[in-house]
């Protein structure tokens, strides 16, 4: 991530009322946290080893706070699955309580399964997609209150 981009994120956050901002690109995750009475502080870290035996990767759902709770968006373009298999019950249903790190759905692309996990504790307010459909990167999948 270039310094220029980091600066742009800081500026964007400073001009908003956000208390937290997280962005991932090219294996970098940038997390900006606003402490009470201070300007946003950049905290940047390289992501850990991507390898796992099952060719699975975990993505924390891109989260942004809005009036109606946390939005869960697709981390990449692919096919969304709400359960581990067509016969199995879904990972979550509307009204269910979830903890940070719980699997919400899977995005399959090119035979690779990517888990989409809850960024924080909450209650699944709405599920906005059907299992098996194509979703664009950044498309809204669920809302967590």
């Amino acid at each position: 991530m270039e310094l220029k981009q980091i600066k742009a994120f800081i500026d964007a956050m400073a001009s908003s009322d956000l208390s937290e901002l997280e962005a991932s690109k090219d294996g970098w995750t940038l997390k900006l946290v606003r402490r009470a009475g201070s300007t946003p502080t950049p905290r940047s870290s390289a992501e850990g080893s991507p390898s796992s035996e099952l060719r699975e990767t975990e993505e924390s759902a891109a989260a942004s706070s809005g009036e109606s709770g946390t939005e869960v968006r697709a981390p990449l373009y692919g096919l969304v699955y709400l359960g581990p298999s067509p016969e199995a019950p879904p990972f979550v249903v509307a009204g269910q309580a979830v903890k940070a790190g719980d699997i919400l759905c899977i995005i399959e692309a090119m035979k690779v399964f990517n888990n989409v996990c809850a960024a924080r504790d909450g209650i699944v307010e709405r599920i906005l997609v059907e299992s098996g459909i194509e979703v664009e990167a950044g498309q809204l999948l669920m809302r967590i209150a």
Binding site: D26, G27, P50, T57, G78, A109, M110, V112
Partner: peptide, 13 residues
């Protein structure tokens, strides 16, 4: 291949 080689994530689009 259409994949991100830092994280070995597929990259359709």
């Amino acid at each position: 291949n259409a994949e991100d080689t830092e994280r070995f994530m597929p990259s359709p689009g």
